[in-house]
Computed example of a mutant assay.
Amino acid sequence: MSIELTQDHVFQTYARQGRPFVKGEGCKLYDDQGKIYTDFLAGIAVCNLGHCHPDITAAISAQAGTLVHVSNLFYTMPQAELARALTEKSFADRIFFANSGAEANEAAIKLARRFFQAKGETDRFKIVTMQQSFHGRTMATLSATGQDKIKKGFYPLLDGFVHVPFNDIEALKAALDDTVCAVMMEPVQGEGGVIPSDPKYIKAVRQLCTDTGTLLIFDEIQTGMGRCGTLFAHESYGVTPDIMTLAKALANGVPIGAMLATEEAASGFEMGSHGSTFGGTPLATAAALEVVRLISEDGFLASVCEKSAYFLAQLNGLKEKHKKVVDVRGKGLLIGMELDVSKGKTASEYMAECFKKGFIINAIQDKILRFAPPLIIGTAEINQLVAVLDNLLAGEDH
Rank of each mutant, 00 (worst) to 15 (best):
E191L: 15
G193Y: 00
M184E: 04
T230C: 05
R227Y: 06
Y237G: 06
D198S: 12
C228A: 14
A204G: 11
K203Y: 07
G190F: 13
R206Y: 01
E186W: 00
T210G: 05
K200Y: 13
Q207S: 13
I221Q: 09
T240P: 05
P196D: 06
T210D: 15
G226I: 00
L208C: 11
M184P: 02
H234F: 11
E220P: 10
D211G: 04
E191M: 15
C209G: 04
P241R: 08
T230E: 03
L216S: 04
G193Q: 06
L215K: 06
E191Q: 12
R227P: 02
P196T: 06
D211C: 08
F232P: 05
T240N: 11
H234T: 04
G229Q: 02
I217P: 08
L208H: 02
G229L: 04
G213V: 06
M185K: 05
P199R: 12
T214D: 03
E191W: 12
A204N: 08
H234D: 02
T230G: 02
G193T: 14
T230S: 12
V205L: 01
L216R: 03
M185A: 07
D219W: 14
E220L: 12
I202V: 15
K203G: 12
K200I: 12
Q189M: 14
I202N: 01
I195G: 00
R206T: 07
F232C: 09
I195D: 05
D219R: 01
A233D: 15
M184Q: 07
E186L: 13
D219V: 14
T212Q: 14
K200L: 15
D219E: 11
G193H: 03
F232D: 08
V188Y: 00
V205N: 06
